[in-house]
């Protein structure tokens, strides 16, 4: 992992083409640049760990990870894989949340890390940014909910 201020600093360009930030102006993005940094993650390394405090929200810039939920009795359920543009840990936007799943890198990753507390504060103080961001995230969450439904339907079991 690399710390803030590493070779690839976050700029407005980092946000381009990421659905989460779609519709935000450059000025609005400038405000978000300050609460974000990039992290590099090696294959096999954790991106986040179930049960840990949900302090940061992450967006995949490159690479791939898988989301796993640990269940009782040492069992695990592999939920999905996430790649460029997808959000990991949107629970960081909720107050005092913990991670509900773990994520592990399957390919070397670069992730954009946003400080959850600061992001919440920014959304509270600038509702235009807050509305845009929440709308984009809502679309993402809705898509995932739908995907989960389809997974539950087990649609290939019959076809």
């Amino acid at each position: 992992m690399t710390a803030p201020g590493s070779p690839n600093p976050v700029t407005v360009e980092t946000f381009r083409e990421l659905p989460t930030f779609e519709g935000l102006t450059d000025t609005q993005l400038e405000a978000i640049v300050g609460l974000a940094h990039l992290e590099e993650i090696d294959v096999g390394a954790p991106v986040l760990s179930q049960g840990g405090p949900a302090n940061d929200m992450r967006v995949v810039i490159s690479g791939k990870c898988r989301l796993i939920v640990g269940l009782a009795g040492n069992r695990t359920q592999h939920l999905m894989t996430l790649t460029r543009g997808e959000v990991i840990g949107w629970s960081a936007l909720l107050d005092q949340a913990t991670w509900l799943a773990s994520a592990t890198a399957l390919k070397p990753m670069t992730v954009l890390v946003l400080d959850g507390r600061k992001l919440r504060a920014l959304c509270d103080s600038d509702h235009d940014i807050g509305y845009r961001l929440m709308r984009n995230l809502f679309a993402d969450v809705a898509g995932r909910l739908q995907d989960t439904r389809l997974q539950l339907l087990d649609m290939y079991s019959h076809a």
């Binding site: 592999h78 894989t81 399957l106 995907d147 997974q151 649609m155 290939y156």
Partner: peptide, 19 residues
């Protein structure tokens, strides 16, 4: 390729095809 259900032996995509 993506699968609805994967396990640790599967390095590929997990998730429905709409994803």
């Amino acid at each position: 390729v993506t699968v609805d259900r994967g396990d640790s032996s599967w390095d590929g995509n997990i998730g429905v095809v709409t994803k």
